[in-house]
């Protein structure tokens, strides 16, 4: 029962979704739209589960005083502060349990949730990603060692795309006459992006798409069962 019923559910639901695409009439059409709504609701609970798991891990680290346990207190504090602000006074578009929090907004200029979002969350997120600009440089140093024809292609394409996307690229080849405009760096970059890059991406997309179709069939037919876990 612990394994067979979930397998049957997967098979029936998967088959229903596929059938509804070929027979978009009653009852399949309505059944599938209802199912999609269920999917959204359960997915929302899955996000809550992920959050519960984060809280559990943080609490256990604090309880057993694991390495760096003090920092996990900050995780919990920041989580609950942001959560309560959002639930009490809502977000930019939503009203919370205590309304829109006009009194607070008139003092700090924004709702508390949005204040934290704009002044902390957005900065942390943007800086975290911009940090990768430095690490990507060291990764490039290792990846771009021109030792074979393939790595030369990688290096050449990356340099041309980067130069073509910046003002220095336009400046370097801006003097070219009209008849040689196709050698203008921004044009070369656009050509690479439009044709060879699309060809490579398309091959990857088709390959991955076929793989996903195969995996979906394996899941629906119950051949692939790893999502059910161990025992």
């Amino acid at each position: 029962m612990k394994r067979k019923i979930p397998l049957i559910i997967t098979f029936v639901v998967g088959l229903l979704v596929i059938t509804s695409d070929f027979i978009p009439h009653k009852p399949f059409g309505t059944l599938v739209s209802g199912l999609e709504n269920w999917f959204m609701i359960i997915s929302a609970f899955a996000i809550l589960l992920g959050t519960l798991s984060l809280i559990k891990v943080s609490v256990l680290k604090i309880k057993f005083k694991n390495e760096n346990w003090k920092y996990y207190i900050l995780t919990l504090v920041s989580f609950f502060v942001m959560l309560l602000f959002g639930l009490f006074w809502g977000t930019k578009t939503q009203s919370g349990l205590f309304g829109h929090g006009e009194a607070i907004s008139s003092i700090i200029g924004l709702k508390p949730f949005d204040y934290l979002f704009e002044n902390i969350y957005e900065h942390l997120q943007a800086t975290m990603f911009s940090l990768l600009a430095f690490f990507i440089a060291s990764a490039a140093y290792r990846a771009f060692i021109a030792k074979s024809f393939e790595s030369n292609l990688l290096l050449g394409a990356a340099i041309l795309v980067m130069l073509g996307g910046t003002s220095i690229g336009s400046y370097l080849t801006g003097w070219l006459p009209e008849s040689l405009k196709f050698l203008h760096l921004p044009n070369i970059a656009a050509f690479i992006m439009k044709y060879p890059n699309t060809a490579g991406q398309r091959a990857i997309i088709v390959g991955a798409g076929l793989g996903i179709i195969g995996s979906s069939l394996r899941i629906i037919l119950g051949i692939e069962r790893s999502y059910l876990g161990g025992s």
């Binding site: 490039a140 990688l154 394409a157 980067m162 060879p196 890059n197 060809a199 490579g200």
Partner: peptide
Amino acid sequence: LMVSFGAAFG
């Protein structure tokens, strides 16, 4: 694929 990876990296 290499050209594509290079362009994506850039």
